[in-house]
Write a protein that binds this DNA or RNA. Structure first.
Lengths: 347, 347
DNA sequence: AATTAGCACTCTTTGTGGGTGAGTGCTAAC
DNA sequence: GTTAGCACTCACCCACAAAGAGTGCTAATT
């Protein structure tokens, strides 16, 4: 038995054959046969020899046969090995880098705009489905909170985070409050909470309420009540999806297409999957997605986090078939995430 | 030759046969034959007689044969007649009415939220694709405009319309302006422009600039400059789409599915199509959509406008195959649009 | 001991031809 | 005007054969 590919001392030839199969399959989307392979590899090996190697690889779970008389197809394990071996990281061509930079710097103001532009950019560059998850509300830090009187019973609350995400809502109140009073409320809140993470702010507000500290202080009382309402933002994340139609091109099975479209519409599962990329910087690749019991065996998600300074806010990604062109896709996701972080930090 | 269906005095039997074919086809999605029809109609007519009627209808362009030995299928003309004859308007069951009311009243605050809830509601009730176009910016009236100083160079502008749509953006400025000054600016703008349509406001601001009236008045000068930036909202409309996966169920052809997904992603064409419904109240039905040269021959769009008082803001709709169940779908769209208008007006 | 030519075998794909059945259009009778 | 009868058309299904790609195994070669 040959050395397993994972071991340090591994058979060069096994590797070469495996990579050739992966790359050929990515290109042609046809099972690869020994004859073809012998030509591609150009090592002076006959198809018969290659067949022996392929038999070994099949035994080790790197290859599969759709049926007896077909060539071999890489398994997810093969893709995983291919990607981890780093064989997949290409350089992003200069001109594509320029496109990314231009698109992100020219996008209209506002973080939301930037994120939806990013998903379109990803989809256009990769010709696959681009996804972007909005920042996690609770982990982001407060820059500014303000209240604006609209009418006697309504107050417009706006809350801007350090990453320039804007949350706003209209609050109904029973007591009539003057704009001047609202200004003192927001001044107080800004002084006390600026630069703190929103979940911490929310916790402190609730604590104050619990301790009953506010009962004798008009200002504090309203500050607590208003900010409680203003901070009651659903933790629901937005998911910007673009390039759905590419799924129809890349997957043949109607059943599968429908499942994927539903996944993209449900959003939550995908956001959770994307959040895996928040753990550590760099590109994160999920081959053969598996989530909530459902298996997306022939799908790959290439994701990366975007950050404000050192603070991971959310993640971007590209979804496609496992047989996607990793060499081309990975650098796109990587570079786009980095430029997006830069745009957010600088803006 | 028999009387054409459109004429006042029309052949009852032609009508009956045509409607039976439409309804049978909607139900079974199978070409309808003369035997089946003779049974359904139960008029004591033999298949042979029905065949004569069907031949007439075919001649007049209401029916088609997929091939010689198949039954008949309704043409778009047939659907149009069926819909216009009002045969398609059913009553919306009480319990569905309750669902609509509950969903719209329970939706989180904010117009945007309401609209995205509506598209989900439409998709769930109809089991087809629900779409909602956001209001046209320029036709909507100003309720409130305010400026908030974020930093020395940045001002947060927020603009609330009468229909409670909130537009906001961050404006970069070169001069340092105090919050007090900003307050007078917004006070001035609110007094002058409240309740006016945004396009009118924008025009007046530009006029003021052109006439050079503002050169000697500090307040006016900044008011004009800031409001010009704040009003520079892209006229781009949002389109909320929900229930895309139903397309895969309703259309068999991959090519067609892909075209439709692209249409839904491009958004602009569909928004234009939806805007047709703004002309007059009530449900608007486009059978065999045709737009921008592209033909969606086997698609129907059922749309209706939503309004603030008497002011048509935007439109909602449902997209599905021409053979959709009009009797069920039309009342849903109709009622949902009315309840949405009510929710917007009351909120 | 590794490599390779040779060969039988497997299994998909493609094409062909006949049988079946649903549905039609026409004609002649009612 | 209606209908029974009948020949005809055409999609659909099935069986079967031929072609072709690729394999695994064996025996010969280096």
């Amino acid at each position: 038995m040959r050395a397993r590919l994972e071991t340090q001392v591994m058979d060069e030839r096994l590797r070469a054959v495996l990579f050739a199969i992966v790359e050929s399959y990515i290109e042609t989307v046809e099972p690869v046969g020994s004859r073809t392979l012998s030509k591609i590899l150009d090592l002076g090996l006959s198809p018969a020899t290659i067949r022996n190697v392929m038999a070994d690889l099949t035994e080790q779970g790197y290859l599969e046969q759709p049926h007896t008389s077909a060539g071999r197809v890489p398994t997810n394990r093969a893709y995983r090995f291919y990607v981890e071996a780093g064989e997949s990281r290409g350089e992003l061509p200069e001109e594509v880098q320029r496109v990314v930079e231009r698109t992100l710097s020219e996008s209209a103001s506002g973080l939301i705009n930037l994120l939806s532009c990013t998903s379109r950019l990803l989809s256009e560059l990769t010709q696959m489905t681009g996804v972007v998850a909005s920042p996690r509300v609770s982990k982001t830090r407060l820059r500014l909170i303000e209240f604006l009187k609209i009418s006697d019973t309504r107050i417009y609350a706006v809350l801007i985070t350090q990453s320039n995400m804007v949350y706003h809502k209209i609050i109904e109140v029973s007591e009539v409050l003057s704009q001047d009073f609202l200004n003192s409320v927001s001044r107080y809140l800004n002084e006390r909470f600026a630069r703190k993470p929103l979940d911490e702010v929310r916790q402190q507000v609730l604590d104050t309420l619990l301790e009953g500290k506010e009962t004798y202080d008009q200002l504090l009382a309203h500050a607590v009540r208003l900010s409680k309402k203003a901070l009651d933002l659903s933790d629901e994340r937005e998911l910007y999806v673009e390039g759905i139609s590419s799924i129809v091109r890349d997957f043949a099975d109607l059943e599968r297409i429908r499942d994927l479209l539903e996944l993209l519409e449900r959003k939550t599962e995908l956001v959770e999957q994307l959040d895996e990329a928040l753990q550590r910087p760099g590109v994160h690749i999920t081959i053969g997605m598996e989530h909530a019991g459902r298996v997306w065996a022939d799908c790959t998600l290439v994701s990366a986090s975007y950050r404000y300074g050192n603070n991971a806010l959310g993640a971007i990604g590209v979804i496609g078939p496992t047989r996607m062109n990793y060499r081309r896709i990975i650098p796109i996701v990587d570079y786009t995430a980095r430029m997006l972080s830069q745009a957010i930090t600088e803006q």
